[in-house]
Simulated assay, not measured.
Amino acid sequence: MTRKTKSAEPAAASFSRTSGLAAIGFATMIVLGNVILVPAGLPHGGARPEDVVAFFSTQSGVLGLASALTPAAWALATVFGAGAVAAARRSEPGRGDAWSLVGFAGLVLQNATFTGLIAVRFALAAAAPHDAATTAVFWTLHQALLSLNGTFLALALVGLTVSGRRAGLLRRWHAAIGMVAAALQFTSATLTPLIVTGYGLLGLIGLTGWLIWVVWLVAYGVRLIRARPEHAVD
C-alpha cells in the first residue's frame, strides 16, 4: 500500500462519517418540517378549496418556519449523496459507480423539485387572502409537484440501494425496504393525474413510501458512519 493510499484512508473515512451524519440530519429536517406543518393544519390531497385558503391565509408564520429548514435539508441531502457515491466507488470500483450516480441524480432532482414546491407555497400564502381562484391553481400545482417528486425519490432509492448493496454497505433488509419504498413512490408519481383531481386518498401510497424512505435514510446514515469498505455485510 502506497503512502498516498494510506494518507487517503483517514480522509475517506472522515467524509463517510460526515455524509452519514448528513443523511440522519436530512431525515431529521424533513420530519421536523412536517411536524411543524401537519399539526398546524396543512391541507392534504383532496382538501376542500376553503380549507386550502384558510390555511395559507392564516399560517404564513408556520409556513415560514418550516420553509427555513429546507435549505439545510437540501445541503445535507447533497452531502449524503456524495458520500454514498464515494463509498460505492471505494468499495466496488467499476460495479457500483453507475447505480450510485443514478441515486445521486435522484437526490439532486428532488432538491430542485422541492425548491419549486416551496416557492409555490409562498405564492399560495400571497394569493390565498385575495384570490381563491388563483389559490386553487397554485394548490393543484403544489400537489402535482409533491406527487411527481416520487419519481426522483424512487431514483434515489433504487440507485443508492443497488450500489450500496453491491458495495457490501447495506444489509438485505435495508435493501429490501429501499426497493419497497421506491415502488411506492413511483406508483404515487404515476397516479398523479388522479391524486390532483380528487382522489386524494391515493396519496397515502406516497406517504407510506415516504415514511419508509425516512427509515432507509437513517439506516443508510448509520451504515456510512460505521462503514469499513473492506468488510461486506450479509
Rank of each mutant, 00 (worst) to 15 (best):
L65T: 11
L65H: 03
L65N: 04
A66W: 02
A66S: 08
A66K: 02
S67H: 06
A68F: 03
T70G: 13
T70M: 15
T70V: 14
T70K: 14
A72N: 07
A73H: 04
W74C: 13
A75I: 11
L76P: 05
A77K: 05
T78F: 03
T78L: 08
T78H: 03
F80Y: 13
G81W: 04
A84M: 14
A84P: 08
V85P: 13
A86P: 11
A87H: 13
R89S: 15
R89Y: 12
R89N: 15
R90P: 09
E92M: 12
E92I: 03
E92H: 10
P93L: 09
P93Y: 04
P93F: 07
P93W: 05
P93Q: 11
G94S: 09
R95A: 15
R95E: 15
G96V: 04
A98V: 12
A98Y: 08
S100R: 00
L101Y: 14
G103C: 13
G103P: 13
A105M: 01
G106F: 01
L107D: 15
V108E: 15
V108T: 13
V108Q: 15
Q110A: 07
N111T: 00
N111L: 00
A112N: 10
T113S: 13
T115F: 00
T115V: 00
T115K: 03
T115E: 04
T115N: 08
G116A: 08
G116H: 03
G116I: 02
L117M: 12
L117F: 11
I118F: 05
I118W: 05
F122S: 11
A123L: 10
A123D: 12
A123Y: 01
A123E: 10
L124R: 03
A125E: 05
A125W: 00
A127M: 01
A128I: 00
A128D: 01
A128Y: 01
P129F: 00
H130M: 06
H130F: 08
D131G: 04
D131N: 06
A133I: 02
T134R: 09
T135W: 02
V137I: 11
F138T: 09
L141C: 12
Q143F: 06
Q143N: 15
A144R: 06
L145H: 08
L146K: 07
L148R: 09
L148W: 04
N149G: 14
T151E: 07
F152E: 11
F152V: 09
F152H: 10
L153W: 10
L153G: 14
A154I: 01
A156K: 05
A156G: 09
A156T: 04
L157E: 09
L157F: 02
V158E: 09
V158A: 11
G159M: 08
L160H: 01
T161Y: 05
T161S: 13
V162S: 11
G164D: 02
G164F: 00
G164I: 01
R165Y: 08
R165L: 09
R165K: 11
R166D: 14
A167Q: 03
G168M: 05
L169S: 10
L169D: 12
L170A: 06
L170S: 05
L170D: 08
R171K: 13
R172F: 06
R172Q: 12
R172M: 12
W173P: 10
H174E: 12
A175Q: 06
A175H: 05
A175R: 03
A175T: 02
A176F: 07
A176T: 12
I177D: 10
M179N: 12
A181W: 05
A183S: 14
L184T: 12
L184V: 11
Q185P: 06
Q185T: 07
Q185V: 01
F186M: 15
T187N: 13
